[in-house]
Simulated scan of single mutants.
Amino acid sequence: MAEFVLVPGAWLGAWAWDDVVPELRAAGHGAHPLTLSGLADKRGVPAGQQTHVEDIVAEVERLDLREVVLVGHSYSGIPVGQAAERIGDRLSHVVFVDSNVPAHGESFVSPWKEGRAMMEASIAANDGFWAPLTAPDYAGHGLTDEQIDRIVTASTPHPGATLTEPATLAKPLGELPATYVKCLLDGDEPSPDVALLLTGDRWRLVEMDTGHWPMFSQPRELARVLLAAAAS
Rank of each mutant, 00 (worst) to 15 (best):
M1T: 14
A2R: 04
A2L: 02
A2D: 09
E3M: 11
V5Y: 02
V5D: 01
L6P: 06
L6E: 09
A10G: 13
L12G: 01
A14Y: 11
W15Y: 14
W15L: 09
W17M: 09
V21E: 01
E23F: 14
L24E: 00
R25D: 05
R25K: 14
A27E: 04
A31L: 03
P33C: 07
L34S: 01
L36K: 06
G44S: 08
G44C: 10
G44K: 07
V45Q: 05
P46R: 08
P46K: 11
A47K: 03
Q49W: 05
Q50G: 02
D55I: 03
D55Q: 06
A58S: 15
E59P: 03
E59N: 06
E61F: 10
R62V: 00
R62T: 14
D64E: 15
L65D: 05
V69K: 04
V71T: 12
G72Q: 06
H73K: 05
S76C: 03
A83N: 01
A83S: 06
A84P: 03
A84I: 02
E85D: 11
I87K: 02
I87G: 00
G88A: 12
D89A: 13
D89V: 09
R90W: 13
F96R: 04
V97M: 01
S99L: 11
N100G: 09
N100R: 11
N100S: 15
N100D: 13
A103M: 10
H104V: 12
V109D: 13
E114F: 14
G115I: 11
M119K: 00
M119V: 15
A121L: 11
S122D: 09
I123N: 01
A125K: 12
F129E: 01
A131L: 07
L133E: 06
T134G: 07
A135L: 11
A135V: 04
A135Y: 11
P136C: 03
A139D: 15
G140C: 12
G140R: 06
T144I: 10
E146Y: 03
V152C: 07
T153P: 01
G160Y: 04
L163M: 15
T164C: 13
T164E: 04
T168C: 12
L169E: 02
A170L: 13
A170D: 15
K171N: 13
K171H: 14
L173Y: 05
L173Q: 03
E175R: 09
L176N: 04
P177A: 04
P177Y: 06
A178G: 08
K182I: 07
D188S: 14
P190Y: 08
V194A: 00
L196T: 15
L197D: 01
L197T: 06
L197Q: 00
L198N: 08
L198V: 13
T199Y: 00
R202A: 13
L205M: 12
M208Q: 07
M208W: 03
M215R: 02
S217M: 09
Q218F: 00
E221A: 15
L222E: 03
A223S: 11
R224H: 12
A228N: 13
A230T: 06
S232E: 13
